[in-house]
Simulated assay, not measured.
Amino acid sequence: MNDDQLLRYSRHILLPQLDINGQQTLIDSHVMIIGLGGLGAPVSMYLAASGIGKLTLVDDDEVELSNLQRQIVHGQQDIGREKVASAADKLRELNPDVSLQLINQRLDKAGLMAATADVDVLVDCSDNFATRFLLNEVSREQNLPLVSGAAIRFEAQITVYDPRQAESPCYRCLYEDKGELEQSCSESGVLAPMLAMVGGTQAVETIKLLTGVGESLAGRLLLLDALSMQWREIKMKQDPDCPVCSQNQEQQ
């Protein structure tokens, strides 16, 4: 690190759990963020500010006026622009040292497998089940930790799926892929600042995974009720019949 970086990241370096070696690890890391919306906005901003060396941003959407209530990485002047380009401008303002790779398309499985070949942590900030199931498969096959978040109305959930841990459950252990209709914030609404709480927590979990600090949320699901401002924790176990990650599946 040069003198400017030592000053920029000094508050991280002061933390004994991180110190200069942990910060260097962040600088040497590569994180992929899927979705630059309500969750991807705070995740990308905090990870860029924290000094993640390379961020790959994936989103095929454009900025709309209705996004600005919660997607704080975009501004009024960005309406009509690609979200990845809009976010990149903001992140470069925050930290010009961060290398950015922009993917303005919805990747299929082959595309995700290729794009995650040198990624250290995958962060799911998407807004649909199809993408979440796909990211879960890629996470397991690439042995890549997946930081998952979701929010709607006044409710949210956050967890980590870590295939590097033998008994860690995956997304498919919790949800069956039945192709059911799902609710979206465009239909049900979502409280804007709650997304900062969830996205900030996803950023914390990402940094912990990269540096090995603390205990990750792997095997634990955090549920937020913002109306009562209560957090609940649910212990998760691997589904022995999960078609993606179970030991039974491996033996078949």
Rank of each mutant, 00 (worst) to 15 (best):
N2Y: 08
D4A: 14
L6F: 14
Y9A: 07
I13G: 04
L14R: 13
L14W: 09
N21F: 04
N21T: 11
G22M: 01
G22K: 00
Q23W: 03
L26Y: 00
D28R: 11
P42S: 06
A49Q: 03
S50R: 00
K54N: 11
K54D: 01
L55W: 03
D59A: 10
E62R: 12
E64K: 09
L65S: 10
L65H: 11
L65K: 08
N67S: 11
L68N: 09
L68V: 12
R70K: 09
R70M: 07
R70E: 05
R81F: 13
V84W: 04
P96E: 11
D97W: 06
S99M: 09
Q101K: 12
I103S: 04
Q105A: 15
R106L: 13
R106M: 12
K109N: 05
A110R: 14
L112H: 14
A115Q: 14
V119M: 09
V121K: 03
L122S: 10
C125R: 05
N128C: 08
L135P: 09
S139F: 10
Q142T: 13
G149T: 05
A151G: 08
Q157V: 01
I158E: 06
V160Y: 03
D162L: 08
Q165F: 11
Y171E: 13
Y175K: 07
E176S: 15
K178F: 08
G179M: 06
L181E: 14
E182P: 00
E182V: 15
S184D: 07
A196M: 10
G199Q: 02
G199F: 00
G200S: 08
V204Q: 08
E205H: 01
I207V: 15
L210D: 02
T211V: 05
G214V: 06
A218S: 15
L222V: 09
E233M: 05
E233G: 01
I234R: 07
Q238F: 00
P240Y: 01
P240D: 03
D241W: 02
P243E: 02
V244S: 10
